[in-house]
Design a protein around this nucleic acid. Sequence first.
RNA 1: GGGCGGUUAGCUCAGCUGGUUAGAGCGCCUGCCUUACAAGCAGGAGGUCGCAGGUUCGAAUCCUGCACUGCCCA
Length: 935
Amino acid sequence: MLRELPKAYEPGAIESRWAEYWIKEKLFSVPTPPPGETRPVFTLLLPPPNVTGRLHMGHMLNQTQMDIIVRWHRMRGFITLWLPGTDHAGIATQMMVEKQLEREGKKRKDLGREKFIERVWEWKNEYGGAILDQMKRLGASVDWDREYFTMDENLSHAVREVFVRLYEEGLVYRGNYIVNWCPWHETAISDLEVKHEEVQGKLWEIRYPVVGSNEFITVATTRPETMLGDTAIAVNAKDERYTHLHGKKVLLPLMNREIPIITDELAQPEFGTGAVKVTPAHDPNDFEAGKRHNLPQINVMDERAHMNANAGPYAGLDRFEARKRVLHDLREQGFLVGEKDYTLAIGKCDRCGTIIEPRLSEQWFVKIQPLADRAKEAVQSGEITIVPDNYRQIYLNWMNNIHDWCVSRQLWWGHRIPAWTCANPNCKEVIVAREAPAKCPKCGGKVEQVSDVLDTWFSSGLLPFTTLGWPEKTRDQEVFYPTTLLITAYEILFFWVARMIMFGSHFMQGHHQDAAIKKASGWTDKKNDSVPFRQVYIHSLVRDAERQKMSKTKGNVVDPLDVIERFGTDATRFTLAAMAAPGTDIAFNESRTDGYRAFANKIWNAARFMFMNVDRIGFVWDGFPDPVVPGQGPDGTAEGGCPHTGIAGFTSVKLEDRWILSRFNRVAADVNDALETYRFHEAANRIYDFFWGEFCDWYIELIKPRLNFEEGGDKSVAQTACANLVSLFDAALRLLHPVMPFITEEIWQALWEGKAPSKSIALAAYPQADEKQFDLAAETDMAILQDLIVSVRNLRAELKIEPKLKLPIEVFVHEPEIARLIEQNRGAVERLATVEKITFVQNSLAKLPGVRGTARFDVHVIYERKIDVSAECERLKKELEKIEKGIIGAQKQLGNPQFLAKAPMNVVENLRRQEQELGILKEKALDKMRELACP
RNA sequence: GGGCGGUUAGCUCAGCUGGUUAGAGCGCCUGCCUUACAAGCAGGAGGUCGCAGGUUCGAAUCCUGCACUGCCCA
């Protein structure tokens, strides 16, 4: 029995036990629903972590939020599919294995492509997917039977199909362009993979001699080494300083090549000297200018950014060494005429930090505009909603400024581009095909597959439909596509989310979700079923306690597993949920987690109390309706399922019963509302306040005498009280389960003693509010009693009364029904306020010392010891100030005819009542101050 | 350079579409091992909501400017 267990909750063993149980029992596996299925469906794709990944706080936040939403839907009767998998992560994984090889003194080229890829697979099978094991520790309720890997054969097949179709539609092209090149990885990368950084650099001024004159033309550059590849000097046509030089040539220093002076917008008169060098092979703007003027493109570097043969005497040098040498030589020969400090933005490789080299090379591109137009439309029309809303505009802005997407990577690990080139140097035909062609269709020559692989995001962008069997038309797609929701980090809004929308809108055009399921799921107002998801929720960034972004280099990374180890998974999950207000970053603070560990302990001990009473009273937990309600609609009221509202098996006998029932229904309503709009923090805080502040602090305290039947009481009273306690606990556990799955499962299973109506609380029904169980009168009455009890406690503390000493009190009430209320709950007041006897008096007690009061009552603790007059005066003074401030504010508004005319009725009424009550309090305070002769 | 946030108690944060005397956790102070829980219970102190204007009957909340700060994009 639980009560035999330690007083303190120890999460470790309990959590791993249930995590294993859930997986072993396949509780979250979802078979394909057959045609005719009418239940609502909820589908969520796990953003696939890199196969090389290790769990960090961002993942944990993401997964906690997903798991909360998923468990919540499942408990409300949705067919709930959460689809997990991992990403092959081209660059990251390849690097991992290259490092491994390095330790063996080898390079990937030593192995050759085939052997190398074998090694990567070996690595993947041995170490890959560690992050999924870590996920299990978090309790993520995913369908492990459907786990995928982006390089699985079926997914790779889909990737080839997509590429070929795009090519056939003219949306894929190949060409020589300037791309972001990482010399360390020796591959092209996309714009998104480049991070810009401001650095202190220099601006050098170099003068070029004008051919056939003694004149020089001076240009400024931050990258002097590229001058070796200059093919022109540009000046602005409007710039009169250079008009006389139009059509002339300059002699390129060091290389002794003649290059033309051209006029182009590239040169802006106000910048530097107004003349710029043009290096089409090494700068994107120069590249464009070069095309406008038909300039030659001279590439002076190789793929490692070492100078090549085109760099003449500098060939073989690293680019930074070359810069030094070029500058040295220019200076020596008198061409270097200036050097200034200059702040410039440089691009670095997102993964290795190497400075990006704009490089002219042959790459494959996706023509983005047609895809982007539809993707923009999907969001603009509201077919996809993005939460928080401000990301919608960010998304649209990005879509409006989108560039073609370079999808080829010069790597080995990844989906190889399904394109072949004819080896015949006179033919060089390019063939894009689903299967390898036997020979060149044009000349019959031998063909070779293009060695490039695809950007990893190319394949992950397809996942919403490829994981559901595309390009086949499957039942899974009818049921689960579009997926319902995507929860992800802002960082990958463009990398991934935008691409999924583009690909989904394109390739799933004409798709229709099963009509019955769509209706049951509440999406009838959506017209477009080609979108990959109906909603996107962008989660916060988890920072450290000092609001710094966590990073390895700063060494401020908080390891979630470490936090879990110390505080438990439930407490960690609760922390993230409670701090996850939409649109705000989270400064992760351990003290909060420590607080939620205490919360888990509180629940644990409340459970121990419950079990103690169940055993003592001999209460048998039966006769309750089966709480598992499959087939329930999103609002808990769909046809076929019984609406599981309120608390079944709860009998209101006394005020506290009516009160807690009402409060429970309110918290259930609030939590469901909050989760509907992803206000995780609100849901978590509401449950916390209810469980601790209302259920434990008041309800349990109030029913203790009824549970304690031995003192000559009626056992049926105890039985009923115990039934209430148990059924309320059961409902509260279900309410909390999505946030704290482990402790709730542990207690819930114990509560049902092996006779639970389902294998897990995760499959039990989620509490829904029953408005009929709201009881305003009970809440108002209870508030008065709480005020009375707190007032007495307050006075006792003030009077420094020994805690155990029971004292008589006198009460004056303004209305007779309050007296009746107190009379009916006399026992509760006496016990919770340590009162010996309550006497009602006919006259106000306000003037007496040792009195507290509200607008409804005064209470006096009878005790010979005098209160500390100066302290009491001080307190009264503060109280009076506050009251007066309130009164002045209220009167100012009530005296304003505009307010009375324009403010809503209830606001005016509330303010009137408030003014009245404050008036009473003011009189009472003043009376007492006079009586005490306060200064 | 362009865009988007943030600034509320000692600390970390809530405060939704403007409407009672601005809340929580941690920390702090006082008193309690009251038979579920000292990871607890009871009580308490602590904020002119970054600054300056404006809109409104009414502003922490909406608008403008400024200061500081963070992020994204070029």
